[in-house]
């Protein structure tokens, strides 16, 4: 066998790119858990009338000031950039791999539907992320404002259009994760055992429902509070 072939860099081979796609995708899933846990503090005033957004503001303050948070934050930005960059590369390669399609389009009815729309669901999540970053992160961390983070959120979520947009984006995130979560494990070569595969699939299904639901419920509740 030809042993002169050098080990290509991870990103030089298709499988390597898929592996990095899986790593970044699953890493972003851990970011979603951390982000959601923080966001849930927005609901604390519901249970503790004296809170008035204090818990959330303290959390936001900690996130923006603590040097410990910088490292995961930078990793997250890198994670997003790599994930999106590879998504574009893989999707364009995939298009080129079949220049001429079939006249008769059929569906075998057994395959994962959302896997076919990862580029679409991902792109809409990206648009959401950019607007989302602009309304909260850029406003506070880059431009700077006198408002507390809780007030900014409260104002944003009293706007029904923003709330609808936020909820729709969460639905698309759910579809992205519905395929993505278990797909990430497969890309990493971790779905080799039927018992574990079933567990990964089930966890992925619940993850894709519960996390976006958790995110979506916050603006809905805050909007209802704002009109009440």
């Amino acid at each position: 066998m030809d042993t002169t072939k050098q080990v290509p860099g991870l990103l030089a081979a298709s499988i390597g790119r898929k592996i990095v796609m899986g790593i970044t995708g699953l890493f972003l899933c851990t970011f979603l858990i951390a982000h959601l846990s923080g966001n849930l503090l927005l609901l604390k005033p519901l249970f503790d009338p004296n809170d008035g957004g204090k818990a959330f503001n303290e959390y936001a303050e900690f996130m923006s000031k603590s040097p410990l948070v910088r490292i995961p934050e930078i990793l997250m930005f890198i994670g997003f950039i790599v994930h999106i960059g590879l998504a574009a590369k893989l999707t364009s390669q995939n298009r080129n791999a079949r220049p001429q399609g079939y006249v008769f389009q059929a569906n075998d009815g057994k395959t994962s539907i959302f896997s076919k729309y990862m580029g679409v669901t991902g792109s809409i999540v990206l648009i959401f992320l950019l607007i989302h970053l602009y309304s909260f992160f850029i406003k506070h961390r880059i431009i700077g404002t006198e408002e507390t983070m809780y007030d900014t959120v409260k104002i944003a979520f009293s706007n029904p259009i923003y709330v609808i947009f936020y909820v729709v984006a969460q639905i698309l995130l759910a579809l992205h994760l519905n395929h993505g979560f278990q797909s990430g494990f497969q890309s990493l070569g971790l779905k080799k055992n039927p018992k574990w595969n079933a567990l990964i699939n089930k966890t992925g299904l619940w993850f894709s429902i519960l996390i976006p639901l958790g995110f979506a419920i916050i603006p809905i509740i805050m909007y209802i509070q704002s009109i009440a």
Binding site: A13, K18, N94, T111, S112, S115, K116, S187, G189, L190
Partner: peptide, 30 residues
């Protein structure tokens, strides 16, 4: 092209080759 883990191949393969093999390949590559 690149695998998106859709699984259509496994469905249409006349020999029922399993996606588990792709996981094996990916972990060997790693």
């Amino acid at each position: 092209g690149n695998c998106t883990n859709t699984g259509a191949c496994e469905v249409e393969c006349p020999k029922g080759i399993s996606l588990v093999n792709i996981a094996r390949m990916n972990s060997d590559f790693l």
